[in-house]
Design a binder for these strands. Structure first.
Length: 397
DNA sequence: TCTGGGGTCCTAGGACCC
DNA sequence: TCTGGGGTCCTAGGACCC
């Protein structure tokens, strides 16, 4: 039996959600109707476009570009600061509505879900009618528009929801692939990014149809495993299941662009201290332990580099994360002015096991885990930051 | 007031083992 | 004494997504 898959995508999510917040607070202006963007704080060097309104898009503004460049494209660009907590609330409300219609749902990102609606015709009737109903229900209850793609697999559903926006339902069933998808530019195909796009065009592959008709062996030579995937996608082939729950965290990381370039080791370590605590809290919230720690640096030339290390004993305390991060930093940092510092833990496991230890390290880790547990509990009870490590105090000035 | 932050997966090459 | 080959694990870097 053919599967029926929906892909539901919030139109200009961050911008729509900010617009609704403003309206709720009494604003007369709906920023969705004027050239506007959601962006980071320019003073903190985080000024990039995170989301844009349709009028802003029409003016040529693209996601990811610096706000100062976006301003050049529009006379009076309205800029709102992003509000992650609020966005999470809208995302949850959106997800809750979708959950009423199927248990087989995958939260693909903060503003997108896949739903497996196979076999629900008896309950909800025609899938396309249902897609309209869901779209309208979200608008009515939450005030923002979505696009819904209806297809026989996830890839086609996702491609379909990306067709014309906003507030639309599109189908891309298997028998519509040639007519609706093949004429598109290869760049529009999911998983064809900048680098593949360049190579494909050099090979004379310009449309999705060209790719679908290309020689697989040749694609494999040029693109390795990506070759096969792109070829299948171009032909509308995708057998991957809608997964619930969302595949669990493979890793947890935080990074931050610094207000100014940093050239002192002690300053970089302060940043790592903060990041260790942020990552550690998230890690312990999931009851996980990590066996890989990696540190990322971006220098003033926007050159990115990253080092990682595998640990014998899984860790979860802030102190253990910090210590390993510092070691990585020491080995990798060349003394160049640093713009961004990132810290991430991965290869997560459920519980700690200890290498029957010839080393005292394992014991130290265990002790730190126990101390951390107590600190977490106190902070939970009396507010975060009630207890901090002595070291983090020193570094705060 | 000049370019964010959160992820996943793949691959090449080195180390090491037999 | 003159150079194997299979396999695994680890790291760094790249590509892609939102």
């Amino acid at each position: 039996m053919q599967r029926i898959i929906f892909h539901v995508d919030v139109n200009n999510a961050f911008l729509s959600w900010s617009a609704i917040e403003m309206l709720k607070k009494g604003s007369k202006l709906d920023i969705r109707t004027i050239p506007s963007v959601v962006g980071g704080d320019e003073k903190k060097r985080k000024g990039v476009v995170l989301a844009k309104s349709f009028p802003a898009k029409k003016a040529g503004i693209v996601t990811g570009e610096p706000i100062y460049m976006a301003r050049r494209k529009v006379d009076k660009l309205f800029v709102v600061q992003s509000n992650k907590e609020k966005y999470k609330e809208y995302s949850d409300a959106f997800y809750d509505i979708l959950c009423k219609y199927t248990p087989v749902i995958e939260r693909y990102s903060i503003d997108e879900c896949f739903m497996d609606m196979t076999g629900t015709k008896m309950i909800f009737g025609n899938p396309v009618d249902l897609a309209y109903k869901i779209k309208d229900e979200i608008y009515k209850k939450l005030g923002f528009t979505v696009n819904v793609g209806v297809a026989n697999n996830k890839l086609c559903a996702k491609m379909a929801s990306d067709f014309e926006k906003p507030n639309k339902v599109h189908t891309l069933f298997n028998n519509e692939i040639k007519t609706k998808m093949w004429s598109l530019n290869v760049d529009d195909l999911f998983m064809v990014g900048k680098s593949s796009s360049k190579k494909l065009h050099e090979l004379g592959i310009n449309t999705i149809k060209d790719l679908a008709k290309a020689d697989v062996a040749m694609l494999n030579r040029y693109f390795k495993s990506m070759g096969k995937i792109m070829y299948e996608y171009a032909n509308g082939i995708d057998l991957s299941p809608v997964e619930r729950p969302m595949p669990k965290n493979q890793g947890i990381g935080n990074s931050t662009t610094l207000p100014e370039d940093v050239t002192e080791l002690i300053e970089l370590k302060k940043v790592l201290r903060k990041l260790s605590s942020m990552v550690g809290i998230r890690l312990r919230l999931e009851n996980k332990y990590a066996t890989v720690v990696s540190v990322q640096l971006k220098n003033n030339n926007f050159f990115n580099y990253q080092h990682q290390k595998k640990l014998v004993n899984p860790i979860s305390s802030n102190e253990d994360i910090y210590e390993n991060a510092c070691e990585l930093l020491k080995n990798m940092w060349k003394g160049d002015p640093i713009r961004l510092v990132g810290l991430r833990v991965s290869d997560l496991t459920d519980k700690t096991y200890e290498q029957i230890s010839l080393f005292e390290e394992a014991g130290k880790t265990k002790k730190r885990d126990n101390v951390q547990k107590i600190v977490d509990e106190i902070n939970k009870k009396y507010g975060s930051n009630t207890i901090k490590s002595a070291a983090s105090f020193d570094e705060e000035e």
